[in-house]
């Protein structure tokens, strides 16, 4: 990833200069470097208690649309999903915050059960 980062940084200027082209191929060395710039996309979550915790922790790994895309789930399903994020994916969420996040998800993206 360090190399990737440096490459990205090195190409940043040339990409910026290309203005209306989000794909760049280095001209000096034919087709050797290919770069893209990912668009910044806004997606927001419903207002509600605990939204700040969701924004802080869940966004580390994925955009909020991962949440808003889901069908309504009962609280135990949201709880299982949040615990998977902590146990399997290493989300740095303590017990109190995990309860806040589960409550937020169940209230705003839940089935009411």
């Amino acid at each position: 990833m360090k190399i990737m980062f440096m490459l990205t940084a090195a190409l940043f200027l040339s990409v910026m200069l290309m203005q209306h082209n989000a794909v760049s191929m280095e001209a000096a060395n034919e087709s050797a470097v290919k770069s893209i710039v990912l668009p910044a996309i806004d997606s927001d979550l419903k207002e509600g208690a605990g939204k700040d915790k969701v924004a802080t922790y869940c966004n580390i790994c994925h955009s909020p649309d991962y949440i808003s895309m889901q069908p309504p789930f009962p609280a135990d399903k949201w709880s299982a999903i949040v615990h998977k994020m902590i146990v399997v994916f290493g989300a740095p969420v303590n017990e109190a915050d995990s309860r806040t996040i589960i409550d937020y998800l169940s209230s705003n993206y839940g089935t009411g059960k």
């Binding site: 990737m4 490459l7 190409l11 087709s31 470097v33 290919k34 770069s35 990912l38």
Partner: peptide, 8 residues
Amino acid sequence: IPTSVDLN
């Protein structure tokens, strides 16, 4: 995800 690859 990869956003830049140098084939060299």
